[in-house]
Amino acid sequence: MISIKTKKTNKKWAAKLDGLCRSWYKFSRNKLSVFGLIIVLTVIFIALFADKIAPFPEHAGAFVDLGNAGRPPGEGYLFGTDQYGRDILSRIFFSFRGAIIMGIGVLAVAVPVGVFLGLIAGYFQGSLIEPLIMRTVDIFLALPPLVLALAVSAVLRPTLFNSMMAVSFAWWAWYTRLSYGMASSIRNEFYIQSAELIGASRLHILLREILPNCLGPIFTKMTLDMGWVILIGASLSFVGMGEQPPKPALGTMVADGAKYIPHMWWLAVFPALAIMIIVLGFNLLGDGIRDMLSTEEV
């Protein structure tokens, strides 16, 4: 009896492993996707261990060393130093933390809220709740997300947390629209009708029957959005509505550095490149995941 059971689980695991290998094969066929994955993993690694990797961890705060102020990139300071003598490279490493927290935090709020509302609106079609949710979505999508996020953070105190709230506020509607579209087509499938027939609860149908079939596109969008959210976060801190100095944030560094162009160009250019690379990494990864999850056979 027991041996049969282990055999079964073994088989299950083997099938899972096989599936994983297939997915990885499909994913890794495109070298750009692998490149994106490497960028993303590197950025996360740097963010986690910034205090160990950064050459000058103390430069992440209010640190002044006027003797080394404005050093061009080179010996000792790979990306040069800023107007207070702080190492740009170390500050970029530490600002990855805020960027990653921003991305994860916003998605952690916007995705569950957005997806759940979309599932409800898609499943309860014809009821009053559908137009209520979807017309609200229309209104939220009538403004560029950056403008909406700016408007909300303008009335809040400028902190990393508040800017995360502001971006989430501007972001959930995209997920509602996405899951609404999928839920409204899935609800007509036979297995949903069967589940209704045997008296499954509505919550069960929403979360156990419809949701799992929406996860692929949602997951793809989340990966792509990590990059865009980080970009919006950087834009907010660029205008001074994110993490406050002396804590480093990519946008703030670009904005401050822009004042010293062209003589101390490295102040703005390296943080700007860092933003570019993060967004590029998540984009390549997201494209790769989309290709991987697409049903098209290899």
């Binding site: 822009a258 250019v269 570019m276 967004v279």
Partner: peptide
């Protein structure tokens, strides 16, 4: 590159 680069980064690059 154009898609992943924010407008303000282009602005700074062009300015330089």
């Amino acid at each position: 590159l154009g898609v992943v680069t924010p407008a303000f980064v282009w602005a700074i690059i062009f300015m330089l």
